[in-house]
Structures are given as C-alpha cells and as structure tokens.
Amino acid sequence: MTETPTLSPDAEGIARAAGLLCDGGLVAFPTETVYGLGGDARDDRAVARIFEAKGRPHFNPLIVHLPDLAAVERIALLDDRARAVAERFWPGPLTLVLPLRPDAGISPLVTAGLNSVAVRVPVHPVAQALLRDFGGPLAAPSANPSGRVSPTRAAHVLEGLAGRIAAVVDGGACAVGVESTILGLVDTPVLLRPGGVPVEALEALLGPIASGGDAAKPSSPGQLLSHYAPEAPVRLNVTAPEAGMLFVGFGPGAGQGAGGLSLSPLGDLVEAAAALFHLLRQADALAAGRVIGFAPVPETGLGRAINDRLRRAAAPRG
C-alpha cells in the first residue's frame, strides 16, 4: 500500500470506504470521540492488520462499533442493567464490555481470546453511515500509532498512518475529543476507563461503580501473567519437533508439526497473528496430554504481540 486517499463523507465516499472494508482493508473514520481505525471484526486478517498498522505491541481487546442496539444484541448478551444503560446512553461515547455470544462470529483477535466483547454505538453521522453501508461489525481502536496521541482530525490520522491503511474518511474535527468511557458489565459494574460519559451519570442509573479490575478475576486483559492458556503445557522457541510433543511450526525452515500445524508456513507475521487464537485452541484439542511446542517467532512487528500471547500461554499456572 503506497498512498492513503482521503475520502469525502458523502454517499460516494462512504460507499468506497465500505467497499475497501469488505475487501479486508483498513479505513479510518470519525466518531464523536476520536477517529477510529476500522476493520471487519469477523475477518482475522483484517484485525491482524489493525495491530500491524498501529504497531500495537499486545493483542489487547478492540472495541466493536455497531449501528444500533439490535446489531449489538447479535454479538453480545445484555441483561437488564446493560439494556438500561444502552437505552440511556447510546448512541454516544460509551463502550460496554459484555458477555460474548457463542455464535457471534467475531474474530478472537478482537476479544483477545476472552469470552467478553467491548461494544459501542457511535452517534457521529459519518460513523453511522459507514456502519450501515458496510453492514457488519467494525473493530476500531483509535487511528494512530500505538502510544501516540489519539487523532481528532483526518490530518492527524495521516500524520501517523499514511501508507499503512486503505483510506481515511474526512468528517471534520471530533466533537468530544477524548475516548469513550468503558464500563464492564460482565459481572459487577466496573469502570475500566473514564471518558466521554461521566461516571456520575452512570452511577445515577446503576448505583456505585468500582474503578479498575480485579487481578484475581480480571475484567480486562493483561492483568494475569498466565492468560490465554490452553489446558496442555506450552513450550516456546522449540527449533525442531521432539518425541511426545505436538509441534507448531513457523516459517519454511521450521517446517510443520506432525498434524500439519504451523502459525505460518511462509513466515508471514500477519498470517501468524490471524491464526494464533484459532491455532491455540486446535493444538490444545489435539495435544492429548502432550506438550505443545512452538517454533521461534521473530520479536519484531506483530511478532512482539504474538510472542507476548505465547509467553502468557506458557506461563506457570498457580
């Protein structure tokens, strides 16, 4: 990808953006909070490209953007609390973390392998038009390189991501300018991130809300070292298959395991990232008491995120 075009927020520009998303491309678009970097939340490769474009060092869960509550209910489970909050604050700058429907069809890269999903219904008319024209869920973190200031104008997006994404839809400056509030409702209500909806407004509806997560029972990822772990023990940086091991290769030099398992036979980090969570589950189902051995993955680009998840899968369990 060489040049990132800027698309107008009219019907023609929205249709072009939706077409790029349907083809697995990444499109930045405005919301009322900041510009989001959108990709098809059902497409493993598209989601992997989001992490690659941002240089995001970990596979943290991504927020899924949807046009309305009915669309949210197709991928998440809402109880009475969640429905009351949604009806009061959506569309708007609020993200809810909810139980994931088993048949949601969302890439496990979006949820970081968890059984919950972060969802939001934006109010911005351009975001709404794009979501309805695309006709599916969009995973969309902020459209900036990881660790950089979030973008509130199309020019900000291009400063950091020009040449890395398919297009940006220019909808002008974002009205709110800070990220959405994130409220966890998988269990007890918990404020995971302050943002565009004040916690006081949420507490007026729900009562007292705790801040942060519980390390013993995390409601967001990255709070436990041993996480994303299969039942079978995992060893890393295995250079060749060993007796009594289910081997998972990477790249042509490492070959494949006896079951033909490989994160990427070509050594493609995007392909490996897209396959990671599916392959962890597949290997665990096939291990039958054996150790799962993973070939080395380069500690560069998306390889850092892949290795982070593999280290968590291999960590000692308490």
Rank of each mutant, 00 (worst) to 15 (best):
P5H: 05
L7A: 15
S8A: 15
E12I: 02
A15E: 14
T33W: 13
L37C: 09
G38L: 03
D40M: 02
D43K: 07
R45A: 13
R49M: 11
R49Q: 11
I50T: 10
K54C: 01
H58S: 09
F59I: 12
H65T: 01
D68E: 05
L69R: 15
A71L: 11
A71Y: 07
I75E: 02
L77T: 09
D103K: 00
I106A: 05
S107F: 00
T111P: 11
N115G: 01
S116C: 07
S116M: 05
V121S: 07
Q128H: 10
A139S: 07
P141I: 01
P145H: 10
G147Y: 15
G147F: 10
V149H: 07
P151H: 09
H156L: 04
V157D: 15
E159S: 03
A167W: 00
L185K: 09
V186I: 11
V190D: 01
E203C: 00
P208F: 02
I209D: 08
S211G: 12
G213M: 03
S219Q: 14
S219M: 14
S219K: 13
S219N: 13
Q223A: 12
L224K: 13
L224P: 08
P233K: 06
A240H: 15
M245C: 05
F247Q: 11
G251S: 06
G253V: 10
L261W: 04
A272Y: 00
A272N: 05
A275P: 07
V291W: 14
A295C: 05
R304K: 15
I306P: 14
D308F: 09
D308Y: 08
R312E: 06
R317Y: 01
